[in-house]
Amino acid sequence: MTPTPASFAAARGSDTNNVITVSAHRDPGRGDRHSRQEDTRLHSHGARRMRPGRRGSGWRNAGWVLVFLLPSAVPLLLFTVIPMLASIWVSLTKWNLISAPTFVAFNNYRRLLTDPTTLDYFLHTGAYIVGYLPLVYIGGLSLAYVLDKKLVARSFFRAAVFLPVITSWVVVALVWQWLLNPAHGVVNTVLGALGLGQPGWWTDPNWAMPSIILASAWKDLGFVMIIMLAGLQSIPGDVQEAATVDGATGWQRFRRVTWPMLSPSTFFVVVISLINGLQVFDQVFVMTGGGPQGATQVVVGQIYNLTFRYGRAGDAAALSWILFVVILAITAGQLAGQRRWVTHA
């Protein structure tokens, strides 16, 4: 679940201003300006004229701006901005990628929004998030809490939990498909030996989504743990001590002091999980391909199918913009709500 650009922007973008204020405090702020004044006094005024960033507001500076900006601006323009604008246009056409596209205005959007199966894709995606988020959050938080203490072999335990994070989604999906194989999988063998039921896992419409959730939680647990660990380590020790002095028990200290102070990390995990969860695709594509009987077809899976199976590029583009609006709305809701529960927000 490492932050994709989109999720990162949402989780951090909102408080861009905060970040900038913080760094201004930390660094180039007042003390710096002060020393700069000294600079001008000590060295001749020539130094002031040559200060980088202020020097030659004319063409010479424009040249430097181009030199430093073009290497990133050109690829971003060609491979992000232009496709993005083109995608808006594609979503307004009927196009099978082969013959010429025909303009159909908002027909694609109208059809998708009135088709009940569109809602199904969003519901499947939602079911994934509802199963996945509590698992990784509670698991990751507990592990971080325990592995923050001084323990023997602590770094081994941390590494063991983290190893799946660096494994790619496709590998995770394949390995879990094999572990959860209904006939010869190790999980069902163990369940059978214990005399328990043996579900059909990813081959059973009712168990397919839980299988995907299990595999995804296994992969992302370590990432959540690292984020929560970083949060725990940023809590000043004297706050904990003060609570202990006041007679708080271990659980009270966690519930009333530590956990509320972790709310920025919690917020980061929740926002990123929601955004990444809404875009879930790789593990679904490999584990179930959207099946059985469409039980796990998610929104991005359908975007893929519309384009490359059914040759309906216009519908695919429209669906991707509907998804984008949903992500934007949910994230905006998160950001609006954060003041109520995130400390220092």
Partner: peptide, 27 residues
């Protein structure tokens, strides 16, 4: 480097972060 429109250009950079890959894949 200080240049005219710097914050606008930076804003445009940040805006590209908000677009998920799925939107871009087809075009």
């Amino acid at each position: 480097l200080s240049f005219r429109g710097r914050s606008v250009v930076f804003g445009a950079y940040l805006a590209t972060l908000m677009v998920p890959l799925q939107v871009l894949v087809v075009p």
